[in-house]
Design a protein around this nucleic acid. Sequence first.
DNA 1: TTGTATGCGTTATCAC
DNA 2: GTGATAACGCATACAA
Lengths: 351, 351
Amino acid sequence: MKSRVVNEDKKVTFTDISKATGLSKTTISRYFNNPDYLSKENAETISHALSELKYQENKLAKVLAKGNTEFIGIIVPNFFHQFYSFFIDHILSTYDQYGYKFITFLGRDNAEAEKRYINELLSYQIEGLIELSHNIHSSYFASLSIPVVTIEREDQFINSVNTNNLLGAKYAVELLERNNCEVLFHINNKISSHIPAYARTQGFIDTCQEKQIESEVFIHAFNDNYNETYQVLENLYFTTKKKYPKQKKGFFFCNDTYANIFLNILIMHHENVPDDYELIGFDNSPVSQQAIIPITTISQNMDKLAENAIMLLEKQIKGGPTDGQTLEHIIVNPTMIERSTTRSAPQRSGH
Amino acid sequence: MKSRVVNEDKKVTFTDISKATGLSKTTISRYFNNPDYLSKENAETISHALSELKYQENKLAKVLAKGNTEFIGIIVPNFFHQFYSFFIDHILSTYDQYGYKFITFLGRDNAEAEKRYINELLSYQIEGLIELSHNIHSSYFASLSIPVVTIEREDQFINSVNTNNLLGAKYAVELLERNNCEVLFHINNKISSHIPAYARTQGFIDTCQEKQIESEVFIHAFNDNYNETYQVLENLYFTTKKKYPKQKKGFFFCNDTYANIFLNILIMHHENVPDDYELIGFDNSPVSQQAIIPITTISQNMDKLAENAIMLLEKQIKGGPTDGQTLEHIIVNPTMIERSTTRSAPQRSGH
DNA sequence: TTGTATGCGTTATCAC
DNA sequence: GTGATAACGCATACAA
């Protein structure tokens, strides 16, 4: 009851197992890595000693000797937007199949801090990096010595997996047109044209032009403040109603949050959805299902995005440095989920 | 252009710096760990060589030599429920202050898989574990050789940080009473009484009894299916309306999702909120703010939960094995956020 | 089938 | 101030 207590905690290593069994450390190592070359008796002996001494393997030592950590770094802006948390959920799910362990950092809005995080990740010998944050230009990632794949962000110099936003917008416009909307509106945040999500606007414009549909694009520098967004969208409601008093209106929003707020505004003003107004959101986030009228939306296929990201990384990790020459931009098609803010969908019971 | 290409990728180590500067590896190490004992000229020389050769530190080797990984493992059931993703967001934010790196696994509903994940984490020498999943009993965690802290789950044999759910329920009941509700209802999932969230029910029952308020508790085995939940809650609406036709009703839900669905049901049936029905949710999740009528809710203080979790872990990590004897259950008080489904709050403009 | 010797990249001990 | 040398825990040629 004096001091030896501290040593009780000491890790048991191959040396201990070696002493306990009378076999060499090499043989212990073989037990794990090449069990075929072991005599059955010795395998038994080792097996017993391992559980007797409660051996706990040390993969870090293994890494130092072998080289591959099976670590992948993730930098994600935050976990407040559903897109990010859902994507991470799918990424982490790949462990069972691919075996990669994930070390995650928050990018927030600080490029300098993010570079520190990346350095920390590199010092832990990550084998690849998944980048969702927007703080740093892709040229920086291209200069790193490890495979990187970006998701739905600027990707000029680096591999990426993105949603086919253009197609998503096309789906939306075509549905609104089929449902006899006479004027179409698109609402989007003020974002750089290098970000894939910008294609939602481009796709809207292109498809409207192609189909000769009267339309307006409303770009605004939204922030994350709910009440401010509400005000902005309510103003939009007033102006569009005044400008196009009799025509059936179709709205395509860049996300479900804005769509939901606009829906609430319409309901409060006793407008008829989907008879006079049709609404389509983007992301298939929970609010689109939980809205007072379930919102038709364009769903990004998270599982495909995540799986392609890991596949792309693994290909580079396994393939070695020579494969790092050609860029690969994988495009995943979205799916339209028709709910009750557009007409052609069946109404949910209870409405 | 033959084969040396492969070697270009080779990591530069202290040995390389040593050769380049003519100094010993020990001195290079000192440059990082005890710069005071270095001559200024040599420090300069090393500094130059480091950037010349683009040295990238290897913390894994450092870990093997020193012992502390600064890794903390996290097991979280999923990233679909906002509670989890928001909590993780706050946990990851502690990096700047505490320096811990986080390796995250998904618990889902599989106890066996989760034990494999924990083993994997242990093999990477994590120094602590944050447990949010419900699959494994706390006795198992107590038997691990590292500090563990659980969040809002069964915690009999292990340290934990939980919300004061009892107080949250009390806040809700008291507000509903102040606003002259005549019958109170509490809706909760069928959960074990060992889970902290169970106290929301207990707190409701206790406070109602204490204040002699007529009340009913509705426990149901909800699943995550939206339409099914809708049906169940719509039935609840019908039965309570029939049973208490003239009395003002107050509903306290175990989460905002149910509160929002019930709100939508009330609106669809042209009921008056908050004149005839008052609603209070739990969690302050986005839907509570984005609902057609913003929902009054009990907010768990995520920042405090996360900070206490890390503090508790660090205390044990730094304190050593002797501190592992006494259990610590930290309780964080929630905050009530009054919005428009209860009467006393100011109405949002536009309504 | 098993053991010896050496290395992975860093830190710690002890000399000089 | 600086440098040999031995650790950390495991893997791998090579030898036997």
